[in-house]
């Protein structure tokens, strides 16, 4: 492309042939550039299609052997080659659900703080600090969780919870000991911290789309700050908020390394939330490079396929909701 500048002097009227030549070269270069960019855009689609096809192909032997029972069976036994995804799916959903239970209110709270309460000079630094939480690699959460958070939970938090709920029927099943430290609840808590910045960032952005006039009108008729947030800001941004929450959920469902460290990697379903469990991504991360036999490998890829389908649906819904907000903003 650097030769265009050199070509320009050649376009003098005294040299019609070279002018035509230069124009031809221009056109050729232009076409080539355009095609390359289009091919790259198509490559993005191709990657997605490739992922779907390769997962289906890889998962096929397992799905063929176990049928639909693969999704509904909780046995995961490499020795007898009996594989079912239910324990992993259960762990994935439980940890993500509890993570959202904590991360959504806290994330919204931070977003409200950043848009409504925080003095202007403090907004940027606090916003960046929260976003840095998203920048910390997943494996760091894992090592920190395992060596710092787990011992604390094991010696302090879990014994207290177990003792608290011990006399209450049903709840004492849900919070049954022993205190391992690692387990579903610990993983959910770490996940909550990890998705917090995503929820905060999107909520803050959609909160900022609320027209000031609307808020001022509400303040003008005597609403308190909380009433403005509850009755004006949140209803106005509802669609975007749900989109942001779904995005956080998508992240939580697929999060791998941090969970692998703290969940205990036990492929079983226990009634207690404090017990070790596993998630789809943790199972894959732990067992894939040591998997022996075609059925074992294929079952792990089938797990990946299930995870991909779940996250694809969640993320697609998130995108559609956020696109709705973006198009109203553009108007």
């Amino acid at each position: 492309m650097a030769n265009y500048a050199i070509d320009v002097p050649n376009q003098s009227p005294s040299a019609p042939a070279s002018r035509a030549e230069a124009l031809r070269r221009f056109r050729f270069g232009d076409q080539l550039f355009r095609r390359t960019t289009k091919a790259s855009a198509l490559l993005v689609l191709l990657i997605m299609v490739g992922i779907i096809i390769s997962l289906i192909v890889g998962a096929w032997p397992a799905l063929h052997t176990f049928g639909l029972g693969f999704i509904f069976s909780a046995s995961w036994n490499p020795v007898t080659e009996q594989f079912g995804a239910l324990a992993s799916i259960y762990g994935t959903i439980i940890t993500s659900a509890f993570a959202m239970l904590l991360a959504v209110p806290v994330g919204l709270g931070i977003a409200i703080f950043l848009t409504e309460i925080c003095p202007y000079w403090l907004r940027r630094p606090v916003g960046i600090a929260i976003e840095l939480l998203a920048g910390i690699p997943s494996i760091i959460y894992g090592i920190w969780g395992l060596f710092v958070f787990v011992p604390f939970v094991q010696t302090t938090v879990q014994p207290a919870i177990i003792a608290l709920f011990a006399p209450i029927p049903l709840l004492n099943q849900l919070f049954a000991g022993p205190a391992y430290g690692i387990g579903l609840m610990t993983a959910a808590f770490i996940l909550a911290i990890m998705v917090l910045p995503f929820i905060t960032a999107i909520s803050r952005d959609v909160f900022l789309t609320v027209p000031t006039v609307l808020k001022e009108a509400a303040f003008g008729i005597g609403c308190t700050r909380w009433e403005v947030v509850r009755s004006v800001v949140i209803p106005y941004t509802r669609v975007g908020l749900i989109g942001g929450i779904m995005l956080g959920l998508g992240r939580a469902l697929g999060e791998t390394m941090a969970v692998t460290f703290v969940i205990g990697n036990a492929a079983r379903i226990s009634p207690s939330l404090l017990a070790p469990g596993t998630t789809i991504s943790a199972t894959i991360a732990n067992e894939f490079s040591e998997a022996f036999g075609a059925t074992y490998l294929s079952s792990l890829i089938a797990l990946g396929l299930i995870l991909f389908v779940i996250t694809f649906i969640v993320l697609a819904m998130s995108r559609l909701l956020l696109m709705r907000i973006e198009s109203t903003r553009a108007k």
Partner: peptide, 20 residues
């Protein structure tokens, strides 16, 4: 749309894809 999903898709899936 697809790019935004790829952006948030679980990275372990990318690993499985390249493995395959």
């Amino acid at each position: 749309f697809v790019n935004d999903i790829l952006l948030s898709a679980p990275s372990i899936i990318i690993g499985l894809f390249v493995y395959q």
